[in-house]
Design a protein around this nucleic acid. Structure first.
Lengths: 236, 236
DNA sequence: CATTATAATTGTACATGTACAATTTATCAA
DNA sequence: TTGATAAATTGTACATGTACAATTATAATG
C-alpha cells in the first residue's frame, strides 16, 4: 500500500478514535506531519485523498475539518475516487439468473469496442441489499481480457476476483443515467409493476490502460435504493 | 487564475486544435513540461485536474491519452457550477415561479444548519433545456451569507452572481438522489402526469470554509434529462 | 520464430524548500 | 466598547530533485 494511502487510512482511524464530528478541527498540518512522520508532500496527498472522498475539508488560514453526511441508508453510487470500502456496512447478496459465453451482441459491440464475433461472458443477476431487491444487473465481460469466469465467482463479487485473482487494474468508467418506466420483463424480476419508475445506469468500465472490458446495465428498484454523492466542486 | 489551471486549459486547447480523439496520445510528460514551460509539479497537477475531469487518462510507462465519451445529449450531473458551465452547447432558460424572502422553513433548518427564525430566499423556478422542460428547482439561500438577491438575478445564473458579484467561494456539496413517482403538484409544473417517474436530487452547497449556504431540491423531467458521469476509481 | 531476458521509456511517489494567500488573533486608536 | 490595522497562523502553489514501478522496445536465446 502506498504511503499516502496508508497515511490517509491512519487519519481516518484518528478521526474514529477521537470520535470527531462534522466541523471538528484536526491537528494543524505541521503537527500532522510530525505526528504521522511523513513529508509534506505525502501528507498533502493523503489529505487531498480524504478531501475528495468527502471525509474532510481544508480551509486555508484556518485548518482541516471533519466532513460527515448526517443521513443514513444511502448508497455511495460513485466514490469519485479511490477506496472501495463503501458498502461494507450493508449486506450485499446476488442471485444469478443466467450465465453464458456468447458472441458479443450487436448493440454491445460499440460500447465495448470489441471486434465482431468476439466472445463475451453475459451475466444477468439480481442484487439484494440487506435482504431487499436492490437492482437487476446485466453485464458483459470481454473474454479477451477476462479469460475465465464461472458461476461460483459470479455469485460473489466479480470485481474482487478480477483484481485479486486475475490481477487486473481497474481504471475509470463512463456512466450514463436516465429515469424511465419499467417494462414488464424487468418489473417482474424486481417484483414491481410495469410502468413503475426506475433508474437505469449504463456503465463502461476500463482498465488503467484504457481498454474497456465490461459493459453493464443496472436497473435500480426505486423503493430500495437511494444514493449519496459527496462532490468537490470547481473543475475549472 | 492559477498556473496549473491555466496549463490545464491550454492542454485542452491543444487537444482541440490537434483534433485528438479517444485514445490518441499526447506528448510525453517531459515534452509537455518544456512545451508549456512549467515545472513538473505544475504539469502534474494540471494533468491530474484533467484526469479527474475525464479529459485524459495517464498510464505509467506508456503515456498520456485522450478520453472522450462518444454520446451526445447527456447532462454532466456533477459540477457545483450549476448547469451554465458544462452545458454551453445547450440553451438553458429559466422561468421564475416564485421568489420571496421568508423565515427558514422548519424542514430546511437542519439541512442548512441555520438558526431558528433566520431569513432565507426561497426560489422556485422551471428550467428549460433547448426549449424543453428539464426540471423544477426549489432552492433556499441563507440571507446571512447571500445578503441580496432579486428577480433579475434569479432569472439568470444565481451561482455566477454569487461568485463574481458577491465574491463567494463555493466549495463542496452533498447530493442525495432518489427515484419516485411524481405527486400531482409537481407533475403539473413539468407537464407530466401524477405517478410518472422522476429523479429527485437534493443538494446542500457549502462555501470553501464549510458553511452551508444553499439547499435545493431538483425534480427532473424523465424524458428530457439524462446524465453522464465520468468516474475515476472503483466501487462495488 | 516464438520466448525470454534486458534495457529504455515514461509516469508516479516522495522529500525538501520558498513564497504567498486566506484566515484568525492581537494590538491600538478613538 | 468599537473598528480599523498589523501580526501571527495555516494551508496552497510552485520549483527541483531522487528513486522507482509499469510499460514498451530491443536484444539474446533456444
Amino acid at each position: 500500500m502506498l504511503k499516502y494511502q496508508q497515511t490517509a487510512t491512519e487519519i481516518e482511524a484518528y478521526i474514529e478514535q477521537h470520535a470527531l464530528q462534522q466541523g471538528d478541527k484536526l491537528p494543524v498540518l505541521d503537527q500532522l506531519i510530525r505526528q504521522f512522520a511523513v513529508s509534506k508532500t505525502t501528507m498533502t496527498k493523503a489529505l487531498e485523498l480524504l478531501e475528495r472522498k468527502g471525509t474532510i475539508f481544508q480551509v486555508r488560514g484556518s485548518g482541516i475539518f471533519v466532513r460527515k453526511t448526517n443521513r443514513k441508508g444511502y448508497i455511495e453510487l460513485f466514490s469519485t475516487q479511490g477506496f472501495k470500502q463503501n458498502l461494507v456496512e450493508h449486506d450485499i447478496q446476488s442471485k444469478v439468473l443466467s450465465f453464458e459465453l456468447i458472441p458479443c451482441p450487436e448493440e454491445i459491440i460499440e460500447n465495448l469496442g470489441s471486434a465482431p464475433g468476439e466472445m463475451v461472458y453475459a451475466i444477468k443477476r439480481i442484487r439484494y441489499i440487506d435482504g431487499n431487491i436492490m437492482c437487476l444487473e446485466e453485464s458483459y465481460y470481454r473474454q479477451t481480457i477476462v479469460p475465465y469466469l464461472n458461476r461460483e465467482i459470479v455469485e460473489q463479487s466479480i470485481f474482487e476476483y478480477l483484481e485479486t485473482a486475475l490481477g487486473l487494474n481497474i481504471g475509470f468508467s463512463d456512466m450514463y443515467m436516465h429515469v424511465g418506466k419499467l417494462p414488464d420483463s424487468i418489473a417482474q424480476h424486481l417484483e414491481l409493476k410495469a410502468g413503475d419508475p426506475a433508474l437505469t445506469v449504463e456503465t463502461i468500465f476500463h482498465l488503467t490502460n484504457g481498454r474497456p472490458f465490461d459493459y453493464s446495465v443496472i436497473t435500480y428498484h426505486y423503493e430500495h435504493s437511494q444514493f449519496v454523492v459527496q462532490a468537490n466542486g470547481l473543475y475549472l
